[in-house]
Computed example of a mutant assay.
Amino acid sequence: MMKRWVRKTLVLLFTIVTFGLVSPPDILLADENTSGPSSQESTSTVAIFSDPYHDESNFIETFIAKAEKQSFEKFGNRIGPVIEDEFKSIIFPKMEEVIRHFLKVEKENFEHVMISSKPSGGKSEKIFHIYDEKTGNDLIRFHVRVDHPPQEGYWFNFHYHTYHDHFQTHYHLGKIYWDRNTPPNWMTH
């Protein structure tokens, strides 16, 4: 098996060369102590806080870019173009602020922070989750829910949950009005 320092160096170089937009090959990410794939969904490596040569600002920018990409993947081609401007001007800056704060504050508690690789479609709320790679436990969950208050039409309610209270509290990010007609399912193309 490849020496640990060689593997870490190759992962770091791969991440730098691809600006973190492409995940390193699985052989570089495989842990010597595990023989099979992990039960966690497929992801791309985003952060290794313990690496002293890791540029934190590039890491955060890469993380933010992945969060935005995940969001528009969730919206699909039918919802995305309709709410894009409001999302970018109202909701995403708040998401970005939460992510930046969370990553700076929590870096002491978690060495390997990842972002889930695929939002959920249909009627499910998940946009993306940020989790600890070592334990597989979610740390923060970004969701969007479709609300339909009586006689008000449909609204997209953006919010997040954190591990601090076992994901019980909805931390409001904002709402975007859709229409009086029922919106299509998430990830509809």
Rank of each mutant, 00 (worst) to 15 (best):
F87S: 00
S35D: 10
K66S: 04
F49N: 08
I91G: 08
D51T: 10
F87A: 00
S39L: 14
D31E: 13
A30Y: 01
E32Y: 03
I60E: 02
A65F: 12
V82Y: 08
P37M: 06
F63G: 09
E84A: 15
S39R: 06
S50C: 12
I60G: 06
E32T: 07
I48R: 07
F59N: 10
E96S: 11
I83F: 02
V98E: 11
A65S: 11
I91H: 04
N77D: 14
D55K: 07
S50E: 09
D85K: 08
S39Q: 11
G76E: 04
P52G: 11
K74E: 05
I64V: 10
R78H: 07
I79V: 12
R78Y: 12
S71G: 00
N33A: 11
F92S: 09
K69H: 13
I99K: 03
I60K: 06
I48H: 00
T45P: 05
I60A: 09
F72W: 06
F72S: 07
S57D: 14
S50Q: 13
S71I: 02
D51C: 07
Y53F: 14
F72N: 12
D85H: 11
E41C: 03
S35H: 08
S44T: 12
T62Y: 04
A47V: 13
G36E: 13
E32W: 02
I83E: 07
I83S: 02
K94Q: 00
G80K: 12
N33F: 13
I91N: 03
S89K: 03
F87D: 00
R100A: 04
R100K: 15
T45V: 12
V46T: 12
P93A: 01
S44V: 10
S89E: 15
